[in-house]
Amino acid sequence: MAKRKLRIMVAKPGLDGHDRGARVLARCFRDAGYETIYTGCHQTPEQIAAAAIQEDIDCVGLSCMSGAHKYLFPECVKQIRALGGDDIQIIGGGIIPKQDYQLLYDAGLKGIFTPGITLDDIVAWINENIVPNVKE
């Protein structure tokens, strides 16, 4: 009877507290009709993974501004997979130089979003690429 709702998590791994982007994104996701879980700043990859599993998340959006994404993003993917979240898609955003893209895609990120992209672009990308990870 009711339509499946997309459940999305916006998470900030690491110690950087620059949450302007993450918070703008969380609002944008709410306005796009998603149920959006926001973890707040300063999360370890383990905490993010556990939250993603408990909340039955379809897509985790990671945000990092500190330059530590090369460690933090792959670690988040690893931890989410370790808890059995094989069907959870992971995307990342923040200050990420081009030269790091391949490393992140190889680690399992499905999309990377950097400064200059519009909110509508991100929502369009999600609508196209993320489906609720429930079978029926």
Binding site: F29, R30, D31, A32, T36
Partner: peptide, 29 residues
């Protein structure tokens, strides 16, 4: 839930994230 868009921001979990790794605690928004 936002009555206009049907979306929601579920933000209360933030205050409970220190229990995230404890298998004895299950938090669901």
């Amino acid at each position: 839930t936002s009555p206009f868009t049907g979306g929601a921001i579920l933000g209360d979990r933030i205050r409970m994230q220190r229990h995230a790794l404890d298998p004895g605690v299950f938090v669901r928004s």
